[in-house]
Structure formats: C-alpha cells, structure tokens
Simulated assay, not measured.
Amino acid sequence: MADERAREGREDVTVVVLAGGGSTRFGTDKLAADLGGVTVLDHLLGGLPAHWPVVLVGPRRDTVRSDAVWVREDPPGGGPLAGVATGAEAVHTALMAVVAGDMPHAAAAVPRLLTALDEARPEVAAAVAVDDDAHVNPLLAVYRVAAVREALPASAHDGPAKRLLRLPHTEVRVAGTPGRDVDTPDDLERLRRDG
C-alpha cells in the first residue's frame, strides 16, 4: 500500500534513465531490442507513471515518452557516473530515481525505493536496490538530488558508478525481473521467458 502511495500524486521525483552506452556485450543496440512487441527502453519507460518527469541521458531516439527531456554528457561516452551527473543537472525536483535503460522491468521497483527513502532518517541520501545475487546496484536507486550534486566530482567522466554508494544509503531487496538488466542476448531471452 505504501508503494502505491509512493507512485500516486508525487511531484517531488524525476526519473533519470541512462540510455547511452555501447552495448558491446550484446552486439547490437540492446535498448532497441524487442521485448514483448516493444523495445527494451520503451518497456521501462511505459512502466513509469506518466506524470513523473523523465530525463533520458544518451543519444536522442524515438520513445513512448515524447515528453522526456534528452541530455548528453560532455564529452559523450563518459560512462554511467557521468550520465548520472548530467542527468542530475537537468532535474528540478528534490528526488531523482536513477534507472539503467537496459532494465526493462525496473519501473516496478521505483515506488518501493521511494518508500524506503521516505522512511529513512534525513541524513540517508539514497535507497539502493540489491538484486537476487546480492549485488548493490547504484543504477537502480532513488537519490536526494542535492546530496548527489554535492558528492560528485568536478569531472565524473569514466568514474565508477559505485562511487554513488559512498553516500549514506539504505539497501532495498529487489527480487526477480525488476532487478535484472540486459547485457547479453541470453539475458534478454531469460527476461522474455520469465517476464
């Protein structure tokens, strides 16, 4: 019930979707790969509440969210931490949910992360997902925007995304498909089968 309240009527959250990257292990553009008749990226975007603002970091493409703001790190190809930094600059809300664009079912986890951050002490700056393999994922998390802006280095280019875990955070178990990404064609096949 609290997760549903986290979804409805909130005006304090923007979703930053990392939609760049080279898809080197996948072999082709994994965000454009078909999953249930839509692209991997559109599967994610379609699961987000329509009234939440979305910032997409990466090269512009057509998506189901024509209202999304597109930004690009400078120089392009700086990695996920640079993407988060660039996305944070475009956010005008107190909170931002960061989601990797190759996590098609991750929208289901965002309300739970929001609830966890709402219930945390004020000094906690983030609620971060932990997947079935016990990996803490800074690219599926909700952050206090001011804390992220303050913590990021002057140049986040090629910095490790795990740097975000230096922020005081709470960890939230995200089981099953919402915590899984698409790195390889086998990953996509598993999501087609299990999703």
Rank of each mutant, 00 (worst) to 15 (best):
D181W: 08
D118C: 01
T28F: 06
G47M: 09
D12A: 13
R5T: 10
A141Y: 02
A33C: 05
D131N: 15
A88N: 02
D186L: 09
L188I: 13
P178N: 10
D12W: 05
R149M: 08
D194I: 12
D102E: 14
G37N: 12
V40E: 01
L81Y: 05
A141Q: 06
D62N: 01
A50Y: 01
L95D: 01
D187I: 13
P160I: 01
A82P: 05
R72V: 05
P178H: 03
D62E: 15
G36M: 10
P49E: 10
G58T: 10
T177S: 05
W52A: 11
R190Y: 04
A116C: 04
V69T: 15
E11N: 08
D158K: 07
A33V: 05
P122F: 00
D158N: 12
A88K: 01
V40Q: 06
G78M: 11
G176C: 12
L167C: 06
D132F: 08
H157E: 13
V40N: 05
L152A: 14
A116T: 03
H135V: 15
V136L: 13
V110C: 09
V71S: 08
V55T: 13
A147L: 03
L48V: 11
D187T: 13
A82Y: 04
A134K: 04
P160C: 01
D118Q: 02
D158H: 08
D187A: 12
A97I: 10
R72F: 00
G83A: 03
L18M: 14
A85G: 13
R72N: 00
L117W: 03
L48N: 08
D34V: 12
A97L: 11
A108F: 05
A141D: 09
E4N: 03
V99G: 04
R25S: 15
P80M: 05
V64P: 01
L114G: 03
P104K: 14
D183Q: 14
S23R: 07
V128S: 07
T24D: 04
G47F: 06
S23Y: 05
H105I: 00
L56C: 03
V64G: 13
